[in-house]
């Protein structure tokens, strides 16, 4: 059952997380580096904090999935869905893990077999597709909010008119 690559992730979680996070944060800033990456306070830099939390949960639960994994996907997609980059870039986040792990194996020379790699790939793909569901759901939510807000603004008038 145990996949060498999954073990690799578990073992090197901190480094992988750091790499992943900084790669992703660079998407937010149109500059190479910005406060978004360096400011570490939970409240003064919520993007970094919540992404870090989410990515960490994903790595921790990468193999067993479960509720926490799902929540983490939600949390991350909630942030991605309202940013100024297109969905393709938002979703790239989840593929990035593949690249990071690949680099990691090269660097550390950890051996793994073909089956591991196939399995790992498919896990990443499944995760990305799940994330896409989340992302779309949040986009839909934005549109729902727009509708709700227009209704609420004139709530009494609509009520009076019997709508």
């Amino acid at each position: 059952m145990s996949n060498t690559l999954n073990i690799l992730i578990t073992k090197n979680q901190d480094q992988i997380l750091e790499k992943w996070l900084s790669l992703r944060l660079s998407f937010f800033s149109k500059q190479k580096q910005s406060l978004i990456m360096t400011q570490k306070d939970q409240f003064q830099n919520p993007i970094r904090h919540q992404l870090q939390e989410g990515l960490k949960d994903i790595l921790e639960n990468f193999e067993k999935k479960g509720e926490k994994f799902k929540e983490a996907l939600e949390q991350i997609c909630r942030i991605l869905a309202i940013q100024d980059f297109p969905p393709s870039k938002a979703m790239a986040l989840f593929y990035e893990l593949k690249e990071i792990v690949r680099e990691f194996t090269k660097k550390t020379g950890v051996g793994f077999n073909a089956k591991d790699w196939v399995e790992f790939n498919s896990a990443i793909e499944t995760m990305t597709l799940e994330a896409f569901d989340c992302y779309s759901a949040h986009r839909e939510k934005i549109y729902q909010l727009k509708v709700d807000e227009s209704k609420n603004k004139a709530f009494m008038l609509l009520k009076k008119a019997g709508i």
């Binding site: 998407f27 149109k30 690249e99 690949r102 073909a114």
Partner: peptide, 25 residues
């Protein structure tokens, strides 16, 4: 399952995805 060589190739060469725009400007 794909052949090991194919995997090797994919592993080595798969292009990276979209990156952040205009860094350093």
């Amino acid at each position: 399952p794909p052949k090991l060589a194919e995997l090797q190739l994919e592993y080595e060469q798969e292009p990276s995805l979209l990156k952040g725009d205009s860094p350093g400007k």
